[in-house]
């Protein structure tokens, strides 16, 4: 079990960010697209050493509870998310919601984790199914973060409360 802790997540993470930045398009991407680019790049990098990473990820039984083998990665990822969320909030892509906004980072981490676990078990050709999942789950998560239905819902609830008083 010691081997679990031997991953140098920060090397993988830094390489992913560096690779993203090599692409001229990356700087112009929205927060949503940056997240997509990051995940695809990250998966590409761990694919180079596929067996090592899949066997590690497959061992992890309870992904959503604090996991020492992934803690370093979580911290790095959360830091990255914070910049994306700030960027997205400033551009209006992400809605700043009182109180709830503190959980955005956690939401993205869970999205990323489920992608990683799916990837480790993906038997489709060239792990194409994972690509579809990345695409769908990142869009889904960012749809939640975006201003929209939820906000009009919150607005409605607030109004109902006001009216009842």
């Amino acid at each position: 079990m010691d081997s679990d802790l031997q991953f140098n997540w920060s090397a993988v993470f830094d390489k992913a960010i560096a690779t993203c930045n090599e692409d001229d398009n990356y700087a112009g991407y929205s927060a949503r697209e940056k997240m997509l680019a990051f995940m695809y790049t990250f998966l590409q990098i761990i694919s180079e050493d596929e067996n090592k990473f899949t066997s590690f990820l497959k061992q992890q039984r309870i992904p959503f509870i604090k996991n020492p083998g992934l803690e370093e990665l979580r911290k790095l990822f959360s830091g990255y998310c914070d910049t994306l969320i700030l960027e997205g909030t400033n551009s209006g892509e992400i809605q700043a919601r009182p109180f709830v906004a503190n959980y955005y980072g956690g939401l993205l981490w869970n999205t990323f984790l489920s992608v990683l676990y799916y990837w480790a078990n993906d038997k489709s050709e060239n792990k194409e199914h994972t690509d579809v999942l990345v695409e769908k789950s990142v869009h889904f998560t960012f749809d939640i973060l975006a201003p929209g239905v939820i906000d009009s819902g919150l607005d409605l609830i607030q109004n109902i409360f006001k009216l009842r008083k």
């Binding site: 697209e33 680019a37 695809y40």
Partner: peptide
């Protein structure tokens, strides 16, 4: 397909 997925597909294949 999102831009990043397009790039990813090229890198894969």
């Amino acid at each position: 397909l999102s831009g990043p997925l397009v790039v990813n597909t090229f890198k894969k294949y």
